[in-house]
Design a protein around this nucleic acid. Structure first.
Length: 421
RNA sequence: GUGGGUGUAGCUCAGUUUGGUAGAGCGGCAGGUUGUGGCCCUGUUGGCCGCGGGUUCAACUCCCGUCACUCACCCCA
């Protein structure tokens, strides 16, 4: 039986793990500098949390969740998104009592049972952050500006920020009624899925990529931006104004609808042409009712999540990940006595913080030298019978090619000095 | 769930049209005189040609099925 990884999952091999380490460290440092603190929640939650928080009519909840019963017959689900768990934790742990505004970030693995394709896996990873407690546009703008700044610092250009407001629940309700009556005459002209969405979640008609559906919408659908309440409009205008003031480029897209039910007012998405068909590198928005929907006090909030795999896809194309090449030392030894000397020398050098390896295959000198070269050793220490006899070791500089002798007894200290000089 | 593409050595692929039990490059290993890497040269290692069935004297090659990978739809990060 040849075992293989589960469809839609991936091994991160030694040859690429440094990329993840680089990115994770970059993100942690970035948020540390911006005064966001990390929050970590469990890999699974009660199924009910997502059904209730994200919305049972959404695709994510209705057909993509990894749900199972535990031995106590409780329905649990591997988390398919992170906002609901974070808010659950916020409520449960009374984080509102620690400060009025809570700013947290996370880096985590998520699970959705979809058909894998470029930029989409069944286990994938996101980082994201939330500002909980502010109803004001400053929070919306900071989320967008901060994410844009993070991408910029990573060296990513040519991003497209799409911005929209889907209004408060009240104005959206009014808008949906108008939308419905305007589109009713054309109901039969829509594709079958859209006809169904017309009943369940009419806003998502805008997500349809069918030419015919988009045509009808372009000609007959009223824009949500024309039906915002006065307060919604003021809020949205201020978000745009603050983005203008901080030189964050964006474009208004009144067809941008998010697939999760909890969003209100500001929604946005950042896309990159360097990705495949799944071109969103992050998406987010305001969710003013999720906290109370999950049983907390009414608390407005806004947040965003970004796909790590998609980010790495971009970074690899623009060469945005620095090669990690730590200098290290390889010890070549010939014969039993030399091997032991080499082993001890390696242990002593490691204690001083020098990355150090010895040969494990007792091979010829040539083979050991090849090994050292292939691994890009910066220095090689050579110990053989001749050196034992003369009580020395040779240190070879692999780039320059020259060798320097050191007395055996003081070799550790002298080599340490020599390569740190 | 639906559609397209692809499955041949560790990796990247040729060979399939015109059926005769497999090749290259890279990699791994070992050598090119007696203890010194990179470049070059030589040798060597390595594949039931995704799996199962059918046609045939004979199948990597033709037919059917199946699985896997991949891209796209749907939806999302």
């Amino acid at each position: 039986m040849q075992y293989q990884n589960i469809k839609g999952t991936k091994d991160v091999l030694p040859s690429e793990s440094y990329q993840w380490q680089y990115l994770e460290k970059f993100i942690a440092d970035f948020f540390d500098k911006n005064n966001y603190q990390e929050i970590r929640t469990p890999a699974f939650e009660m199924t009910e949390l997502f059904a209730h928080g994200v919305g049972s009519d959404t695709d994510v909840v209705s057909k993509e969740m990894y749900t199972f019963l535990d031995k106590g017959n409780t329905s649990l689900t591997l988390k398919p998104e992170l906002t609901a768990p974070v808010i659950r934790s916020y409520i449960q742990n009374r984080l509102d009592q620690i400060s009025t505004i809570v700013k947290v970030y996370y880096i985590d693995a998520l699970f959705r049972q979809e058909r894998p394709q470029k930029g989409r896996q069944r286990q994938f990873h996101q980082f994201g952050f939330e500002i909980i407690g502010s109803p004001h546009p400053e929070a919306d703008a900071e989320v967008i500006q901060t994410m844009y700044e993070l991408y910029t610092q990573l060296g990513i250009r040519d991003l497209n920020i799409r911005l929209n407001s889907i209004g408060s629940r009240e104005s959206r309700k009014n808008y949906l009624a108008i939308l419905k009556s305007e589109l009713m005459p054309f109901l039969n002209d829509f594709c079958p899925t859209c006809q169904q969405r017309f009943q369940t979640n009419i806003l998502r008609l805008f997500d349809c990529k069918a030419e015919s559906c988009q045509q009808i919408l372009a000609n007959h659908a009223p824009s949500i931006l024309d039906h915002l309440s006065e307060d919604d409009r003021i809020h949205f205008d201020e978000v745009k104004h603050l983005l203008d003031l901080t030189d964050v480029p964006y474009s208004i897209d009144n067809r941008l609808v998010r697939g999760l039910d909890y969003y209100t007012r500001t929604t946005f998405e950042i896309t990159s042409s360097l990705l495949g068909s799944q071109d969103a590198v992050c998406g987010g928005g305001r969710y003013d009712h999720l906290v109370e929907d999950l049983g907390g006090k009414p608390t407005p909030a806004v947040g965003v999540a970004s796909g790590m795999e998609r980010l790495l896809l971009i970074l690899n194309q623009i060469g945005g990940i620095p090669e990690s090449q730590k200098p290290f030392l390889f010890i070549v030894s010939l014969g039993e006595q030399a091997r032991r000397r080499g082993f001890v020398l390696a242990a002593d050098l490691r204690k001083k913080g020098i990355a150090c390896e010895t040969d494990f295959l007792r091979r010829s000198m040539k083979a050991q030298m090849r090994e050292a070269d292939k691994k890009a050793a910066k220095w090689v220490v050579i110990i053989g019978d001749n050196e034992i006899e003369k009580n020395i070791v040779f240190l070879k500089d692999m780039t320059a090619g020259n060798q320097t002798p050191f007395t055996m007894e003081t070799a550790t200290e002298e080599i340490y000095q020599y390569i740190n000089r």
